[in-house]
């Protein structure tokens, strides 16, 4: 057995099992912590896809930023003292049917399509200098727009969350 295969199935198992826990668990805090393992597993898959920089970015932004933000949201909007962390699910059966159909269709398409394979798929070397060069040459405009979007999101989030209620 090749080490690559073992690691691939390990990360795939971590990702899919913890994603299932995220969806199935009734306790929203358990869901949030299972999401942590999903993000770790996805980062491992990124490493296997020769995307080391994206994997580190995933860990920094998703685990360090978005997950902490989600946990803050959970703690600020659930009644922790009254132990009301359970969240209900609605329309489970039709959703299962729809999602099963969706997954079947997607996997069928992925399976049956004859994807073109690049001849020299020996992986990349030195991805970070190349990504930096591409961000400042061919992807310069999206890069700048992304910075503006982040600024707008920062100001907008602060404005929305800090809006003062009128004195009643």
């Amino acid at each position: 057995m090749d080490l690559y295969i073992i690691v691939f199935y390990l990360f795939a198992l971590i990702t899919l099992a913890s994603a299932a826990i995220v969806v199935i668990s009734k306790n929203i805090v358990y869901s949030a912590f299972a999401l942590l393992f999903t993000f770790f597993g996805v980062a491992g898959l990124y490493v296997l896809l020769m995307a080391d920089f994206i994997a580190v970015t995933q860990l920094l932004i998703y685990v360090g930023g978005i997950l902490v933000l989600l946990l803050f949201g959970v703690m600020l909007t659930t009644k922790v003292i009254r132990v009301d962390m359970r969240t209900a699910t609605v329309r489970t059966f039709p959703a299962v049917v729809i999602v099963a159909a969706l997954a079947g269709t997607l996997i069928g398409i992925f399976w049956s399509t004859d994807w073109p394979q690049s001849p020299a798929s020996d992986g990349f070397e030195r991805t970070i200098p190349q990504i930096g060069e591409m961000l400042l040459t061919s992807y310069l405009l999206p890069f700048e727009i992304a910075s503006v979007v982040l600024l707008v999101a920062l100001i907008g989030a602060a404005m929305i969350a800090r809006r003062e209620r009128k004195a009643l």
């Binding site: 969240t87 729809i98 969706l102």
Partner: peptide
């Protein structure tokens, strides 16, 4: 296929959770 399953699980969460 892994990403297809992950996508479907995410759609399930979007559809069923309140």
């Amino acid at each position: 296929i892994i990403s297809g399953i992950l996508f479907s699980v995410g759609v399930f969460a979007i559809l069923t959770r309140r």
